[in-house]
Design a protein around this nucleic acid. Structure first.
Lengths: 342, 342
DNA sequence: GAACTCACCACAATCGATTGCACACGTACG
DNA sequence: CGTACGTGTGCAATCGATTGTGGTGAGTTC
């Protein structure tokens, strides 16, 4: 229990025979020029010998910065996100920053509370991967000048940088693939329309269908309440109940597609024999499903990495106009899609 | 950019007409008795009106505590861990604490660096879910009196509380299940023996096999270098190369079992027809695999929640002797196991 | 009515690092 | 030889909250 007091700046200064202020300047590359060359050398040496580690808390208190960024995700248990987290960290860490990950579990109130907590801990910026299309709190934060970048979402009329996969292209590729197989009645198992991604993908689907000269039948559109398997299953049941005789389903994301699988199994409907299914995101483990899911691959790691890079840009130059980055996606055809029966 | 200065304790004190010290005591339930009842009421009221939020940084600097605990996991992308994280948070948050999640990616050096960083940020305790059986750094931390609890692992001869699934029971159940199906040559696709879990499960396997009167044939034991699909696949290939004619494989965890699946597919071996496979952990999505994986279910959420509770106990009473909690597991039989052919 | 409690609150130090300012010393220049 | 300038350091304030110590007042007691 006799915890060895960690060495402080003061200890370094004392044993180097200088004032703490001088030691501080010597240790900081940006201010090192302000002290004599050999003094600096001496301080550096002593700091190393003593194993000095600056106290980030004290530093943050004084500088109001923390070398920490908040990373807000809606659901850590969704395998889609961990690779993004990795991508973020891969850029942050070499730059000496750390990510503080919070999981909102899709609850805007939690999100707000968590972000507030992060801010009071002086995070230097925020990477927000939760997907609500509208969120007054984010708007307020932006107005206050908090550096942030959105992942996977955009907030309407908000001039905040954002990196996301190219939803439109992905959905279009999925629809074309199904059309190419000969399907003519495609259903959409859409994500929640209050989420930016849900809305975008649904819009893209309807456009793609209409562009192909097919009817935009509302009976072929279902919306899941959450991005989860259960919600996907519920929405799929609705779809089935309308008896619209579709032969293919485009799901808003892979989790929804899994819910869809469940319902097909429970109704004894063969996939892809009777109904083809396409997912979105290419989250891990999909290739091992039964049947392996055809889906749209998004570059998870790159999404995270680019978001982090963008955040650095924002922090460096707050006045910078927001740019949005759309990352290319590609269809991965596996076993859940096939020509329609008949 | 004109960020509204957050209200400080001092602002509260000023508008309440008291000294900051008094305000501080009024705000803190533990010291509230030291101030007059109506003064306290007034301060509380003002704090609320002004929307005062204490600055955790300043507080930590002064008190050397942060209401934050470090949660160290080896691989966030392994679906096994997010549910544990949730469990931890479910206990931490109601108590006003936060978890700082770090992903070591299985690298002991990273682990050390991350923990050091956490400590300098004054975390109040550590929940360590990485699995190395031996780690001098942890030993040192413990000697320093850092409250910590281990998840999924135990460090030999280290008197640290630890919560983990009952590996022995799980493996025993798996082996019995296979024996019950009529298998007599069982192979083990073990996890890295340098990890606590890997060693424990391997030991349990050998005991169970011997107890059943079967030979403990070294040719039927393979060890994966990492807890990953690739390593699992490599080890499985070794196993196959020995031509030991086994009809069932017990994998150290589900990821290893997935690697095993890959190799079986690549050799055109039918599972469960020719070879049965059992996993461990029951991580999410397994029921959707092809074939659905028979595995040992561990109560992920409970593991996390209990770990957090134990940490609180440790923090409250540092001298408390370490208890270890073994959580019960149960076999989930799905489709990857069947009687041996012939 | 003097002395003594006790409740309540203010003062000031502190946590560890950063930073504006001022001072000392040396050199160069008029 | 005195003024101006510049470099290298030290001093002290500061970030925002917590806490040990001390002091003032009211209320008790003899």
């Amino acid at each position: 229990m006799l915890r060895p007091r960690p060495v402080r700046l003061r200890d370094v200064a004392d044993t180097a025979g200088v004032h703490p202020a001088t030691a501080s300047r010597a240790l900081n590359p940006a201010t090192r020029a302000q002290v004599g060359a050999d003094t600096a050398r001496r301080v550096l040496r002593v700091a190393k010998d003593l194993g000095y580690r600056p106290n980030p808390i004290a530093r943050s208190l004084r500088t109001a910065r923390s070398h920490t960024v908040g990373l807000i995700v809606p659901d850590l248990a969704n395998p889609y996100f961990p690779p993004i987290v990795r991508g973020v960290e891969s850029v942050l860490e070499p730059a000496g920053h750390h990510a503080w990950i919070v999981d909102t579990r899709g609850d805007p109130e939690r999100e707000r509370a968590q972000i507030e907590s992060l801010r009071s801990r002086q995070v230097d910026g925020l990477i927000v991967a939760t997907a609500l299309r509208e969120h007054p709190y984010l708007r307020a934060l932006h107005a206050e000048g908090v550096p942030m970048v959105l992942v996977n979402r955009s907030v309407e009329g908000l001039d905040v940088p954002c990196v996301s996969p190219d939803d439109t292209s992905g959905i279009t590729q999925a629809v074309r693939h199904l059309l190419g197989l000969g399907h003519t009645r495609l259903a959409l198992l859409g994500g929640p329309s209050r989420t930016s991604t849900g809305a975008a993908r649904t819009r893209a689907f309807r456009h793609a269908v209409r562009d192909a000269g097919l009817a935009d039948d509302p009976a072929l559109l279902a919306e899941a309440a959450e991005w989860s398997e259960e919600s996907g299953a519920r929405a799929m049941r609705q779809l089935l109940d309308t008896r619209s005789e579709f032969t293919a389903v485009v799901a808003g994301n892979d989790l929804l597609a899994l819910g869809c699988y469940d319902v097909l199994a429970e109704h004894g409907i063969d996939c892809p024999g009777a109904i083809s299914v396409v997912g979105f995101n290419d989250m891990p483990f999909l290739s091992r499903l039964r049947p392996a899911l055809t889906t749209v691959r998004v570059p998870h790691h790159a999404v995270g990495a680019e978001a982090a890079r963008m955040l650095f840009d924002c922090m460096a130059e707050p006045a910078r106009p927001a740019r949005s980055l759309l990352l290319p996606v590609s269809l991965v055809v596996r076993e859940s899609t096939a020509p329609p029966r008949g």
